[in-house]
Simulated assay, not measured.
Amino acid sequence: MFRFNVVLTAFLIVVLNTGCSVMAPQYNLSVDNVQLLKNSGTSVVKVGEFSSKEAPGNANPISIRGSSLSSPYQNSYANYLAEALKQELTIAKKISPNAISEISGVLLKNDIDASVSSVGSTTIEARFFVKQNGKVSYDQVKSIKHEFPSAFAGAVALPKAIQEYTFAVQKLLALLYSDAAFVQAIK
């Protein structure tokens, strides 16, 4: 009986002292974003390199209430953003590996706040570049703060925060696609 208690106590210490590691959901494209791209009158583009700047508020993985949220795209949120662009450009029929215009970027901020309150938020900021024949024709920073209902209970707040991440990326891309200077740069 004593041995069982020792093993059980050791097991509980290990379980309670280690955070849970969770994979973020794969990106689900926004039909509204695809429509924005289709209606823009732009030509085809290719998606180039996306990187991530090491800075406070740009963690990889993202820490949410003691759990770690990792990207499903090579454990990189910069790759998550690139994949989101590729998916929406593909469905809008606006992507080609031979295009003269290339979209690339740097992820500057990427954080989820699901602290003990009734409102959580995701903050994403990225610098987007468009190059045509190697010359930069667009260089802008886009930033969003996506708020969502949260809860005191971690069992409710954590899944909600994870689910809302994709919507935050969709909002960031909608902001990019709505920028007249971006649309002009990829024409």
Rank of each mutant, 00 (worst) to 15 (best):
L89Y: 06
S76M: 15
K86Y: 00
S40F: 06
S70L: 11
S121G: 15
S67F: 03
L108A: 15
L37G: 00
S68P: 13
V44T: 11
S52D: 04
T123I: 11
P56F: 13
E49M: 13
P25H: 11
A99H: 06
Q87M: 05
V47W: 02
V31C: 07
T123K: 13
L108C: 13
K38V: 04
N60V: 06
N75C: 08
S68E: 06
S121F: 09
S101H: 11
N98Q: 15
L108D: 06
N28S: 07
P61M: 06
S115Y: 08
T123Q: 12
L89V: 04
G66Q: 10
S121N: 14
L89C: 09
E49K: 15
S43E: 08
V47N: 01
D111H: 09
K86G: 01
A55S: 12
S118A: 14
N98L: 09
L69P: 08
E49I: 12
G120L: 04
Y27S: 00
S52R: 07
A92E: 01
G57R: 03
S71F: 08
G120H: 04
E49A: 15
S118E: 07
E102Y: 04
D32N: 09
N39G: 00
P97Q: 13
K93A: 05
E83S: 01
D113C: 09
S68W: 05
L89W: 03
V106P: 00
T122C: 10
S101C: 13
Y80L: 01
S40N: 07
K46R: 13
S101Q: 11
I95A: 07
S43F: 02
S43Q: 13
A59G: 13
A92K: 00
L89A: 08
S118T: 06
N60Q: 09
L36Y: 15
N75L: 15
Y27V: 01
V47D: 01
G105Y: 00
S96M: 10
A92I: 03
S63M: 12
I91A: 04
V116S: 15
K46P: 15
S67M: 11
S63R: 12
G105K: 03
K86A: 02
L108I: 14
A92L: 03
K93F: 06
V47A: 02
S52C: 10
I95D: 01
Y77P: 01
L89S: 04
E54H: 15
E102A: 11
K109T: 15
V44F: 05
I100W: 01
E83Y: 00
Q26Y: 00
N58W: 02
I95R: 10
